[in-house]
Write a protein that binds this DNA or RNA. Structure first.
Lengths: 125, 125
DNA sequence: TCATTTTGACTACAAGTGTAATCTCAGATC
DNA sequence: GATCTGAGATTACACTTGTAGTCAAAATGA
């Protein structure tokens, strides 16, 4: 699986926002959240291309970049990996621990209930 | 916050199993799960001490190592960090995504229900 | 007592990462 | 056409990480 460093992930975030995108657009988007020099972002883009997390098409002199991996795909895989390493693959302990110090919203609760319902429906065949 | 690399985390796991522990014990414990050379483990221990994730007391020529951070503390902080970066701080989307491809156990469901009940009791003041 | 073993300390070294600066060349500008 | 500019390519450099090897000193065994 493709592994992204933190900085690389930030660049992917900018790209996931909309693509294909020119490097100037990506730099523009990132300028809101970071102080990165544009050279830094170019370097990161290059590394992402090398890792095949990003592809590009030449439009004359410019490149149009696109992600080759989906955000949901990536984040979920990484999450599962963490849950595996930290909680032996079980998600409930994470939720319990999380809820102890973080406030859940009504929406969170609704979503959790939906997950439970889904599971129970499936159990009842 | 103290950041641990993957290899360092493995060493912490061995130490969390029981402490204080001599390096020989830690090496012994890790021999079940890894092929690491004992020198490698010594190096990692040294780095952990430098990072102040581990402390030691000299017992003559030997050291007795102990973790200075708790496993739950560390794993929860890292989890929250990931949830923040990947899911804007909300845990429900992670649970939904997780449940789509991973099988939940009855125990998981019970724990999730407990979290919900806890939350609802609190809402009702 | 002298060699051997063992432990922690120090050193090594390539790959990955954060954070750019320099080089090169095609297109825009005068 | 000569020059400037901005894009991508290449190079840089310190720090971290994985994965040990070497060194010095103490304990141990013969």
């Amino acid at each position: 699986m493709i592994e992204l460093s933190k900085a690389e992930f930030e660049v992917m975030e900018a790209l996931w926002q909309g693509h294909p995108a020119k490097s100037s657009e990506i730099i523009e988007r990132l300028s809101d959240d970071t102080q990165w020099h544009d050279k830094t972002i170019k370097t990161l883009l290059g590394r992402l291309v090398k890792k095949q997390a990003v592809s590009f098409e030449k439009q004359g002199r410019l490149y149009q970049y696109s992600p080759t991996i989906g955000r949901d795909d990536y984040t979920l895989k990484q999450s599962k990996n963490l849950i595996q390493r930290f909680f032996s693959g079980r998600i409930a302990p994470l939720v319990s621990g999380f809820a102890k110090t973080e406030q859940l919203s009504q929406q969170d609760i609704n979503e959790l209930k939906a997950v439970i319902k889904e599971w129970e429906d499936q159990q009842g065949k």
